[in-house]
Simulated scan of single mutants.
Amino acid sequence: MDQEELRVKDYLLQGIFNGMFTLDDKMPSELALVEQFKVPRIKIRNVYQFIEKMGYIYSKQGVGRFLKHQRKTLDVVMTGDVSFSEKMRQQTENYKSIVTKLERVSTDHEIYYKPQIIPKHTIYLVERLRYIDNEPAALHRSYVIADHFPQIKQANNRLTSMYSFYKSNGINAFHSTFSNLSVSFPNELERALLSCEVLVPLVKVESDNWDKEQNQLLEYTEIIYRTDRFSFQL
């Protein structure tokens, strides 16, 4: 993106953030922006395609481009021992969690290269999609140490909350020894699972979860959040 395109992009994004453009009203036409900024039409089109990939606008063939409804973001507190599901239910009534995978992890999986994992451990992956307002908003992967919980193999779609699972097995105190946060753009699989545009940033949080009383590792966790659905408190 060159300087002329950046100037148009900054103008449009500032208008979106400041309320200059009204929800579902037509955005400025390409020809209007060509006249306003004195740049070739292809540059205006490039900017609009970029902003659409960011998830702020949508197109109607032969009609124009329109501002998308920007959904309310939910707070995620990155500390504490409250389950993700409980945090979400405190903020919205329209939340659900669906198990998308429950399977044993092969011994050549990258999870076995994590320093917290002992190679002899039997690990099960429990993957859940978190839905807010009927839209996928986060992907949660728990790599559970199945040696401690052989019953996990038969748990199936009941494992929407690992905290509830652990508590049902007599574990009530948890702690974590680390938390790593990284930001990326979604790959093809993540775009399909999370139904997000290519330029919607994702926040990935990796951490471990221990039984505090027994000092026993329960799981290694990866959570991938759509940043257009959450705000983060550290």
Rank of each mutant, 00 (worst) to 15 (best):
R41G: 03
Y113R: 05
D228K: 13
D133I: 09
Y11A: 03
N46R: 15
Y143L: 06
Q61F: 02
Y131Q: 14
E4L: 08
P150A: 00
G19I: 10
E30M: 10
E222P: 06
L74S: 06
N187S: 11
Q233K: 14
L218F: 00
K101C: 06
K101H: 09
M162I: 03
Q91Y: 06
G55N: 05
N94A: 09
I171K: 01
N209K: 03
F37N: 09
P119K: 10
L202M: 11
V203E: 02
Q154Y: 04
S176L: 08
I118F: 08
L13Q: 09
Y95W: 09
E135M: 10
I57D: 03
K120E: 02
F37P: 12
M78K: 07
E213A: 09
Y11N: 05
L194M: 12
Y112Q: 02
Q90W: 12
G19V: 06
V99D: 04
Q216F: 04
S184I: 05
T221Q: 13
L199Y: 08
Y112F: 02
V99N: 07
T22Y: 05
R104A: 03
S179P: 01
M78E: 12
A155F: 00
F17K: 13
L125I: 09
P40H: 12
N94P: 02
L218E: 00
I123V: 01
Q116L: 04
K120C: 00
R45S: 14
I171T: 01
N172D: 06
L194E: 10
R229M: 12
I57T: 07
Y11M: 06
V198Y: 14
K43D: 14
V198C: 10
H140D: 15
E4C: 08
E52F: 05
F84A: 07
E103S: 13
D2G: 11
